[in-house]
Design a protein around this nucleic acid. Structure first.
Length: 487
DNA sequence: ATAAGCACGC
DNA sequence: GACGTACGTGCTTATA
């Protein structure tokens, strides 16, 4: 749909260059860059092997594979430009971010770990006291038996697909009134999560050579074109709860000459929907700089924006999420805790006020039925083999993918282009600042204090201009002495 | 080893 | 009547 690419001209690649880049980086395990020893050494970049695995064997000549196997495949699927102008130029950017790592300040985390341990022990005792039996709270199976057979907190417990008692957060929240044990279990779960996944795990992953944390980014895992992060996953560091935020505070600049700069796209997925759907009302919301959830609330509840209540805005926010992910009346009613009929009315109101979004969705699903795939602004495809299934559940799943993939995928295209261009600009200007992390719509930098103004200007310009859109693209930026402050 | 259930992020 | 909001990673438990 959008034909322009704003990759810097000297970063345009041909297949020979791609093969060369691949040969240059592929044999380098990240462990050799950062000095980690282990039996599970993996190649630094997995994108090419992952893409090639069905077509060629590992030992064959890679250049030949690229030319004879991979190139025709890319041409056939119309994804050569995407590969050559985005995915391959991104490889050295990710290499640099992985090798750079980020500093973790562990002193406060050690203290926090003891605090969590005490909280967990106390809750553990209180929960068993309330239950009147010894059991393992961390076992959903045992917990379900205690809640629904011994305490009988409800007479119609929800079951999982394997017909165990369901004890997930949404289920327990609805039962919170029924018994004081419920909230303690929720607290226990969240503390245990923070301790085991973050507070205790992250310090162990500090590299002994440079005292920094090195994640790995995978380009070939997510079906929509997003990156994923693992070993450790730095894309799911807590931020929602006060205790979770303590963990973000531990991510700090390398030294006192630096500060962390975080830049994130504001409402990028809804802006992309506005761009793709050309819906006049949604475009107007962004052009006039309104708060999109408030504007949506005003429209679906039929009041003026200044009369939108907190509750109305919260509902509209849930609706907007639903639009991005492919909504159903049932799903919305569950999330808003309202009758299905009311949810259906809200959805009908939404589509009445945003008819362009409705027709865009219909057209996208039609396109998928006809061609068997959908695509992003940059031509990234997601194939949807179930889009014409006679099974309504299976088909519905494919239809939600058809709606979401172009949106989530275009957002991924955009930030990837921005990353390539920012990395190149930092290099060209000979700056000391480094790009460290990507979290889907956010970039985090170790910013040298002397370069801060230049970096801010550069990051904003590259992020906003990565894919030219008629809908305004807005980013928020902040700096701080840790990742929480910078956010 | 693998799956299930859960919780963290966007 | 069932299904029921996208994309991920990683922890603990339970079972093979």
């Amino acid at each position: 749909m959008i034909a322009h690419y704003l990759i810097e001209p000297d970063l345009r690649h041909n297949m020979d260059f791609l093969a060369e880049t691949y040969l240059r980086y592929r044999p380098v395990p990240i462990e050799s860059l950062i000095g980690k020893k282990g039996k599970n050494q993996r190649s630094l970049r997995t994108v090419i092997p992952a893409l090639l695995k069905d077509y060629a064997c590992e030992d064959a000549d890679v250049t030949l594979q690229l030319k004879e196997v991979f190139e025709p495949m890319l041409k056939e699927t119309g994804t050569m430009d995407l590969f050559a102008r985005i995915e391959m130029p991104l490889v050295p950017v990710l290499v640099s971010m992985e090798a750079e790592g980020i500093k973790l300040e562990t002193t406060a985390l050690k203290e926090f770990s003891s605090e969590l341990h005490e909280g967990i022990s106390r809750l553990d005792a209180e929960i068993k006291e309330l239950a009147g039996v010894e059991f393992n709270i961390a076992s959903p199976k045992q917990l379900g038996e205690v809640l629904f057979e011994k305490l009988k907190v409800t007479d119609k417990p929800k079951l999982t697909k394997t017909r165990q008692y369901s004890t997930g957060e949404d289920v327990l929240l609805r039962l919170a009134e029924k018994h004081p044990i419920i909230n303690k279990i929720l607290d226990y779960r969240s503390l245990a999560k923070l301790k085991s996944t973050y507070v205790d795990a992250l310090p162990k992953l500090i590299n002994q050579r440079d005292r920094r944390i090195h994640t790995s980014y995978n380009q070939a895992v997510a079906a929509t074109g997003r990156l994923s992060s693992n070993n450790p996953n730095l894309q799911n560091i807590p931020i929602r709860t006060p205790k979770g935020r303590e963990i973000r505070k531990a991510f700090v600049p390398r030294n006192n000459d630096y500060t962390l700069l975080a830049a994130d796209y504001s409402q990028i997925e809804l802006r992309i929907i506005a761009e793709l759907s050309e819906d006049a009302n949604l475009i107007e919301t962004f052009v006039s700089g309104q708060d999109v959830h408030t504007a949506t609330a005003a429209r679906i509840f039929g009041v003026s924006p200044d009369l939108v209540t907190t509750d109305m805005r919260r509902s509209a926010k849930t609706v907007n999420f639903g639009i991005v992910y492919g909504i159903s009346a049932f799903g919305l009613s569950e999330r808003l805790n309202i009758p299905r009929k009311e949810a259906a009315d809200i959805i009908a109101q939404y589509f009445a006020k945003y008819p362009g979004v409705k027709s865009y969705m219909d057209h996208t699903i039609d396109f998928a039925r006809k061609h068997g795939y959908v695509e992003t602004m940059m031509g990234r495809r997601r194939y949807l083999r179930d889009i014409n299934s006679s099974n309504a559940t299976v088909r519905g799943y494919a239809e939600r993918n058809a709606i979401n993939a172009p949106v989530q995928g275009s957002s991924a295209d955009m930030i990837k282009i921005a990353m390539i261009n920012i990395h190149e600009s930092i290099r060209r200007e000979g700056m000391n600042s480094k790009m460290l992390l990507q979290v889907h719509d956010e970039l985090v930098f170790d910013a040298h204090k002397n370069e801060l103004d230049l970096l801010r200007e550069m990051v904003e310009e590259k992020m906003c201009s990565a894919i030219p859109m008629s809908v305004p693209v807005v980013i928020h930026m902040n700096t701080g002495d840790n990742w929480l402050e910078a956010h």
